[in-house]
Design a protein around this nucleic acid. Sequence first.
DNA 1: CGGCGTCGATACCCCGGAGGTATCGCCGGG
DNA 2: CCCGGCGATACCTCCGGGGTATCGACGCCG
Lengths: 279, 279
Amino acid sequence: METRELRYFVAVAEELHFGRAAQRLGMAQPPLSRAVAQLERRLGTPLLTRSSRSVALTPAGEVLLAEGRAALAAVEAAERRTRRAGAADRPVLVLAVKAGASAELLAKLLDAYAAELGAVPVEVLLCAVGEQGPVLRDGRADVALLHLPFDTTAGLDAEELGTEGQVAVLPAGHALTGRTAVSLADLDDLPGLPAPRWTGPGGRPDGPGPEVRDHAQLLQLVQLGRTYTVLPESVRPQLPEGVVTVPVRDAARVTTVIAWPPHSRSRPVADLVGTALRL
Amino acid sequence: METRELRYFVAVAEELHFGRAAQRLGMAQPPLSRAVAQLERRLGTPLLTRSSRSVALTPAGEVLLAEGRAALAAVEAAERRTRRAGAADRPVLVLAVKAGASAELLAKLLDAYAAELGAVPVEVLLCAVGEQGPVLRDGRADVALLHLPFDTTAGLDAEELGTEGQVAVLPAGHALTGRTAVSLADLDDLPGLPAPRWTGPGGRPDGPGPEVRDHAQLLQLVQLGRTYTVLPESVRPQLPEGVVTVPVRDAARVTTVIAWPPHSRSRPVADLVGTALRL
DNA sequence: CGGCGTCGATACCCCGGAGGTATCGCCGGG
DNA sequence: CCCGGCGATACCTCCGGGGTATCGACGCCG
């Protein structure tokens, strides 16, 4: 199976429309129809059920869509990492970090690693929430800091770096800020202080609260008294004026892990992981 | 990048010889040389350093060899799983198990899963030591039972099923068989009873002992008084006559996990994992 | 030190197949 | 009943992947 065929099939499977898929691929519709038909012949199984009014996936098509996306990501990752390895005279390590998280750990890690023998330059790639996994898988980064249980290490190699509790981040002056600790139940359904919404894994896509995309937005909304949030306690040093933290007794403990794609255990990656584990 | 180009490059990188690589690929040498050169042009970086006497990998080439193998495995996995999904009228689940291991757990799991609502037929694929990972990654299997720390879950999703201690398996009548427990040090350098050798991860590739490829061979050699071994205690019911087990105090505990490729969390896989966790 | 054998690169040719255009056949809606 | 949208088919073109013949570089050996 060639990646070209896979790309064609994935485009059609996503659009469920040959014409639009062809347009997206920058080609005409007939060769696309032919290519997909040929792929079906080669695989010996129909991938799509076509009527002149609609296109739908067969069970085999569902499988190929999921597997094909992963395979295409792997090919893209190979290409990107090779380009990066060839472009720089010295190799560069790209470390993906959720924007706004683990700042202190990150600073210590970068310092400690830079002092290592044979350290290579490290580029820090700040990601949106939940983007570190994909970024690792498609080769834009070599290593990432993840936070369980929010992120997932599925398909990655990882080592645990430490765990911490979580604190509620509230607007200054809120009724709960006098408490020495709160529980999640206390935070649920606070009058006039809805939980924020964020898209992606672990987020609540519906509800009354404001929608946020990253930590900065979130904290600004807390500052403005429009929402609250629960974050790992290590963010405290980076919090702005006007917000107050209260430990949450029963929040899940957050585990920070360092993760990398399993087959790219290069020397620099191994060194960085070793440094992180010794911190 | 097309899979054809990747296959060509991987062949050359493995053989380090254009002629032999071309032969392996069933083609002539000149088009292979051209294809690799074109790949280098497209990637914008040399992958091989050629003299008329030898071929060697550049750093970028090393990266592409590692990443490319993984990418090709992913493409093959997509192809195989799609074929399987399309071929059978009802989907079939392929479960990879190390030959000779976890027999009791396996039997219970298969029984319990077969009794589930919506269970699909399960095919058991018996693997050589350490082969379950690759078998999962290239799509020959959908789920596997692995044994940490011998196997690795790198690149896989996994759930823990249980841990157990290990026992030494010795020929009947051996001096140590009277002991109620032994330590690893006791087993090291036993006179006339060398440790077995096996290739693959965790094995010792050199040494005086006989070379083995699977459990059956290993146990036969123990029976014959030619070697000893250390195995999880759950193998005891399957041991043949003529061998004796003694608990090993300080051997690493073995964790049995059920693992699957992260992107193929189909309904049957999820059911089987759920069943395993409830055992 | 010169001839030879080995190996990758180059030159040149051919053909399959990928992609384009025109058009058909099917089907749902007004 | 006709129109419009959509996928399939027919047919053509041309690029490029693959083959053969050959060159040029470089160890090796007599």
